[in-house]
């Protein structure tokens, strides 16, 4: 796994999502009121809503388009809906925030999208 620094803790506003592009990946990064930082793919499994724009409550985000409730820890969509969104490990070192990516993940994504894989 590779770690990519995305910025400082204070650059992620509390309880408001931030969109972070890494290569071709688009992540939604959140700072919860307890201080934890979470990162998930910025795409709701329902109809692709931008999760970074969603309302955050505790460890959950509500998609801004149709309010699916998603647990940020594991990406699991909550009842009565179902599905899952990709989550990414977050490492905080000092005031730096890093995201863990599997090797070449950001490129693989592009290849999948263009049908190369």
């Amino acid at each position: 796994m590779r770690e990519v620094t995305i910025g400082k803790v204070t650059e992620i506003p509390e309880r408001t999502g931030r969109v972070v592009h890494i290569g071709n990946l688009e992540l939604a990064v959140f700072r919860l009121s307890g201080g934890e930082i979470r990162a998930v793919e910025n795409r709701c499994p329902h109809r692709g809503g931008p999760l970074a724009e969603g309302m955050i409550s505790g460890g959950y985000v509500y998609c801004p388009l149709h309010e699916w409730k998603i647990r940020l820890k594991d990406g699991k969509v909550q009842d009565p809906d179902s599905g899952c969104v990709q989550t990414y490990p977050v490492i905080v070192e000092g005031d730096e925030v890093k995201i863990g990516l599997r090797e070449n993940e950001e490129f693989r994504q592009r290849e999948e999208e263009t049908g190369l894989v």
Binding site: V4, I6, G7, E11, R18, V19, V20, G23
Partner: peptide
């Protein structure tokens, strides 16, 4: 904080070049 997005460009081997 509310309108801009972060772009981190990565080359295959090393960390980060872009800024938040």
């Amino acid at each position: 904080s509310l309108y801009e997005e972060s772009r981190v460009s990565v080359s295959a081997e090393h960390g980060r070049e872009g800024d938040i």
